[in-house]
Design a protein around this nucleic acid. Sequence first.
RNA 1: GGCGAGAUAGCUCAGGUGGUCAGAGCGCAGCACUCAUAAUGCUGAGGUCGAGGGUUCGAGCCCCUCUCUCGCUACCA
Length: 685
Amino acid sequence: MQNKKQFKRYTVTSALPYANGPLHIGHLAGVYVPADLYVRYLRSNEKDVVFIGGSDEHGVPITIKAWQQGVTPQDIVDKYHELIKKSFAEFGISFDIYSRTSNKIHHETSSEMFKKMYDEGKFVEKYTEQYYDESHQTFLSDRYIIGTCPICSYEKAYGDQCENCGTSLNATDLINPRSVLSGKEPVLRKTKHWYLPLDQYTDWLKEWILEGHKVDWKTNVYGQVKSWIDQGLQPRAVTRDLNWGVKVPLSEAEGKVLYVWFDAPIGYISATREWAEQKGVEWEKWWKDPETRLIHFIGKDNIVFHCIIFPIMLKAEGSYIVPDNVPAFEFLNLEGQKISTSNNWAVWLHEYLVEFKGKQDVLRYVLLANAPETKDNDFTWKDFQTRNNSELVAILGNFVNRTLVLTHKYFDALVPQASQFNEDDLKAIAEIEAIPERISMSLENFRFREALAEMMNLARLGNKYLTDNEPWKIFKSDPDRVKSVLNISLQICANLTIVAAPFLPFTAKKLSEMLNIGQMKWKEAGNIHLLKPGHRINNPELLFEKIEDETINAQIEKLNATSRANQNDKFVPNPLKEPVQYDEFAKMDIRTGTILEAEKVAKTKKLMKLTIDTGIDKRTVVSGIAEHYDAKDLIGRKVCILVNLAPKELRGITSHGMILMAENPDGSLGFVAPPDNYVDGTEIK
RNA sequence: GGCGAGAUAGCUCAGGUGGUCAGAGCGCAGCACUCAUAAUGCUGAGGUCGAGGGUUCGAGCCCCUCUCUCGCUACCA
């Protein structure tokens, strides 16, 4: 939807990448390439715009990674911040500033914001009980506590989740909890935290988004927001007991930091301040003037933060504007599978930049052409090759090349003078004039794929115009006609330097150099007198080169190799558990049994209700295997069952025992069972 | 299970408020052309728009049910 309101300036942010790993194509397709395209377009239109980016460097995962590697959190974020920043720069994401949340100015900005909200009573205080490590004098987040899983008795379950059985836990559920830091038993201690009462802003959110942005926000964003609001918002803690992050600026808050979701979006503001300081301009109008248009580019996983929580923070603080639009993108899959950092199923930007040197625009093009605007999309290397060879090379590169080659051949590299335009010329000119406007419309409505296609249509138009007019055929008989044809073809090339620039900045620059002209602004687009007759152009070079099968196959092979390496092959068994005496094992009464009945538990995804003949009795067991087996395939199956496990109620059904299953690293489950002809009720020992 | 988003030509996807909306690009087939990185241009084949009902003079487009996919969420003894 076209936004009717006129804005004086634009503040465009792109989600802050979390500094615990490198960037991959999913980040680019869903946030940075579209944001960069949009910003470059605005700049070409001579809009006042600031484009903000930066690394998100706080939060527990970074502290854990640091702890695992035996380095400090600062070491981790320094490493990835530099890598990410360098990759962005080389890839051509044109941030006005790429900052980081460990900067002093960010700590100041977020502290000030917290303090102001605190002073004005915007928070609610609550006490909770949390584990505390006395020897390290610190509270422990759930991840910092290891103990025995109350479910499966795995002794190295984390406080938030048991990685053995997959159960999500509360730290207080663990038996024999130990601090990861000291190995000692932590004590429960009361701790105070500040909560942002999101629920108090429900009416405001409804008015602002559900009524105010019904038509101009993307359906995926609007739907998600509505869902959250309808489900009812809860107060959310804005502080944590942790020593990595922004210190809570209160004397009573020793050892507490701002929760990462609170400080991260403020990073946009801090970065703007930092940029403004460097530029010697004032920052506040970029965040507080209602005539500033604030736009957040994010992935769909961030919708709740950017459409609900951060706007509430801004609203609660009182002096800030809220976003005018939040164009959230869906996810990009890779060769049909979800991109996964931990499984190394990704195309990493820093590797691409080395392996496809000088091909930034190819990746930009492919990612834009496949941008997951309305639903998850798939990136395949084959498609990457096709788009490069059949579109960039064959349509855009080829058109430019044939025009320049012809100009050199017939007119000694000088732009020829056009004479009388015929009907065909006028038709082409009308199109040249119309295309920039169509691109603008698409971009302003965040329809990036459509805009890209329109841009390519200009090159298509050029190819058609040349082919229809066949200057190579008529040069001898009608050289004046050829002058007109090539003049128009050259003007199309010149127009391409403008309209292609936001999409393919490296290519546009190269083309400008070949045409021996500077970079022109968007308002010149559609003009068919950009090149003056007699203007000398430079020698043509190829804008794009074909990508051969071997290159693509090598990438596919590389992916498959890492994939294989990252599944079962890479499996590292859990370390040996503590020794046990036989009599401890003997307490476990494990029997052979047979499944008599199986029925999926209604309203659950994983639970299967089983009736088991244990030889002793017939009993009901609830087991989380419904994702792996159909009920009908289970009946008659032999199993091993732990029969003296204390009963437990699950979704209203009491489970008497546990079926023994083996779990493969890829997540599949298999029965541990006796041979089919074995009698039920015999003991496993 | 709840909530949200999707399911449209071989592939990747468009289809504001229902009535030339059955489309684009790529791929494929034929023809034309040779300036060009065997590139380009033209023409064509291809879909009962996930399934089934309903509203309407008329529905990919509105309503209901169902199936499948993705995300968030609950569940994993």
